[in-house]
Amino acid sequence: MTVSSASPQLQPLLDKLHSAGTAETLRFAVEDIAAAQLSEAVPILIEVLGYNNPGAAVAAVDGLITIGEPSVMPLIELLDGFNYGARAWALRALAGIGDPRGIDLLVKAAVEDFALSVRRAAARGVGKLHWQEFTSEGDRVVAQSKALETLIQVCDDPEWVVRYAAVTGLEALGQVLESQLVDERPHLITRLEVMAQGDEAPALQARAQLALQRLA
């Protein structure tokens, strides 16, 4: 435990967390920690993801996303050792942060995670990666190409909400596609057209139609 070395800002919040007696007071304590936006709180927020307290986990994910960059490596390093429920929350945090270093994990989760809520968040995250944070244009092109391939694949997911996330991802990606990938753009548009005409869910058809309008 690193409790003894916590800053004067964090310490009282940690005390509140450790004395929380109910799921609700625990959630309130986590919300306070998240609101403080202290990067030194990253380890404790990550620990909360494993508490099996959904309200607290939502607050912790929000906190990790707000803190942003300092959360990324601890999340990636810890993902392997996590229990299943905590993995899902950690992936959602990574998806929300959009850091380039999360791309491999997000791509994998979007395609093959067992839980549809994780595939949904990961697909959304793949489309909304912070492309300007890739260090070189070459890296960015490779990453976008991988993201495009992934999202087109996810458009075949059996769950409507995962396909919906993929469509929003394709729209976001279509707006920032690098010029080197100009030849790939028709694939993206064609996939959206197929969804707009033939997806079994009318909501998906509408969302794909909206994406096409916005990319026109």
């Binding site: 959904p54 549809l116 809520s117 409507w160 909400v161 919906y164 869910a201 009318p202 909501a203 509408a206």
Partner: peptide
């Protein structure tokens, strides 16, 4: 409530509206 539930509700709303 859970996001997954809210998404289902909004999908229902949208699809009723589309009809």
């Amino acid at each position: 409530a859970e996001n997954s539930l809210k998404l289902i509700a909004l999908k229902g709303l949208l699809e009723t509206h589309l009809r």
